[in-house]
């Protein structure tokens, strides 16, 4: 499936034809370069490696530099897209024209780091009453049983680090594509802060025609 690497610019609102305000996220897709190709014969699977955000050679480690063929500028962000479904050769640049007649997209990114958070925010626990003599407010409550199993089961939901993890938002409607300014507007929110790197692909759970 085709895909692109973009950057989150920020959110705003636009009017549609009927005069309703739609909340949109603006994403910028600077030209993506095909850095390498994975083939079934050699790698056991088929994929295309796209790169975005050119980086100075001096800022890259030599082992990382090794994967850029001659004549290709080193890129900071590299992502593989499996079964690309579009003919391309190493060195080609891809832009938003790839997404031209796509109606809905999935966006993958890294969520904002929230730090150490309690169970109510992190796992949507209900918590207890604030008043009427209650002494149970935002604590996690019981974490397990008694003499058997005599331990806390692995993976029990507790307080801890939240955010900063990979997240995919499915089926966001494409509101507009601005080829000239390399912008794509999608309805709704997208993981990550401003300037965060996101990956865009046609929606897998929704028809591709808008």
């Amino acid at each position: 499936m085709v895909g692109l690497i973009g950057k989150k610019v920020g959110m705003t609102q636009v009017f549609d034809d009927t005069g309703r305000l739609i909340p949109v996220t603006v994403l910028k897709v600077e030209p993506n370069v095909v850095v390498a190709q994975r083939t079934v014969d050699r790698d056991g699977y088929s994929a295309v490696v796209l790169g975005a955000n050119p980086q100075k050679e001096s800022r890259m480690a030599k082992p990382v530099l090794g994967q850029f063929a001659e004549g290709i500028q080193p890129m900071r962000d590299l992502y593989e897209f499996r079964d690309f479904g579009r003919e391309c050769a190493v060195g080609d640049t891809l832009g938003l024209d790839v997404m031209q007649d796509v109606g809905y997209v999935d966006i993958t990114g890294t969520t904002k780091g929230k730090g150490f958070q309690g169970v109510m925010k992190r796992h949507n626990f209900g918590g207890g009453r604030k008043t009427h003599g209650s002494k149970f407010h935002r604590a996690n409550g019981s974490t397990g049983m008694a003499a058997y199993p005599a331990k806390v089961i692995k993976g029990t939901k507790m307080a801890g680090r939240m955010g900063g993890e990979r997240s995919t938002v499915l089926s966001l409607r494409v509101v507009r594509i601005d080829q000239e300014n390399q912008l794509i507007l999608v309805k709704g929110a997208v993981p990550g802060r401003k300037n965060a790197v996101v990956r865009i692909r046609p929606a897998v759970k929704r028809s591709m025609i808008g």
Binding site: M11, Q13, L185
Partner: peptide
């Protein structure tokens, strides 16, 4: 930031 302003300016 400027890209956001440009998007909005089209509707103003």
């Amino acid at each position: 930031m400027d890209a956001i302003k440009a998007v909005e300016a089209a509707h103003v």
